[in-house]
Simulated assay, not measured.
Amino acid sequence: MDVRADNQPYDDINITPMLDLAYVLLVTFIILTTASVQGVKVNSPATTAQNNLAKPQTRAITVTADGALYLDAYPVTLDELRNRLADYKAANPALPVVLKGDTAAQYDVVVQVLDIAKRLDIAEIGLVTTRAK
Rank of each mutant, 00 (worst) to 15 (best):
Y23L: 12
L69M: 08
P75C: 08
Q106L: 12
E124M: 13
K41E: 15
A73C: 03
V24A: 15
Y10M: 12
L32Y: 11
P96T: 02
S44F: 02
Q112G: 02
K55P: 00
V37F: 07
L25R: 09
T64I: 10
L95I: 03
V109Y: 01
L78P: 02
T130P: 01
K118D: 01
L81R: 01
Q57I: 09
Y70H: 15
L114Y: 00
A123M: 04
D102C: 06
Y70S: 07
A105R: 01
L21C: 04
I116F: 01
V109Q: 03
L127D: 02
N52A: 15
A123S: 13
T58K: 12
N7I: 03
T16E: 11
Q50E: 14
A5I: 10
Y74Q: 10
L120M: 00
T103I: 15
V40A: 08
A123D: 13
P9R: 13
N51Q: 13
R84M: 03
L53R: 02
V40H: 06
G39C: 05
Y74M: 10
Y23A: 14
N7G: 04
T28P: 01
D102K: 07
K89L: 01
Q50T: 12
I61Q: 05
K100Y: 11
V109N: 00
A104H: 14
I116T: 03
L26F: 11
P45Q: 15
L25W: 03
G101F: 12
N14W: 03
A132T: 11
L53V: 04
G67Y: 12
Y23T: 13
V113A: 07
T130I: 09
N52W: 05
P75I: 10
L78E: 12
I13N: 04
D79W: 08
T47F: 06
L69F: 10
Y107L: 11
I122Q: 00
Y88F: 06
V3F: 09
V128H: 03
R84Q: 04
P93S: 09
L19V: 14
A117P: 01
T130S: 13
D11R: 08
A5T: 09
V109I: 15
A86E: 01
L78W: 03
V98N: 04
V63R: 04
V128E: 15
N43T: 14
R131L: 05
V40L: 07
Q112W: 02
T62L: 07
A117W: 00
D121G: 00
M1L: 09
G67N: 08
K133Y: 08
A86I: 01
V76S: 05
Q8C: 09
L95T: 00
L78M: 11
I61A: 08
N92C: 05
T129Y: 13
M1T: 06
L78I: 06
P75N: 09
V110A: 14
A68K: 15
D11N: 07
T16I: 12
Y107N: 13
A35L: 07
K100A: 15
V109A: 02
I61M: 12
L32I: 13
P96G: 07
T34F: 11
A54G: 01
T48M: 05
T58M: 15
A49P: 00
I61H: 09
T77W: 01
V37C: 04
L120F: 00
V109F: 04
T48D: 10
N52M: 10
V40T: 15
T34C: 04
R119E: 02
I13C: 04
A46W: 08
V111C: 01
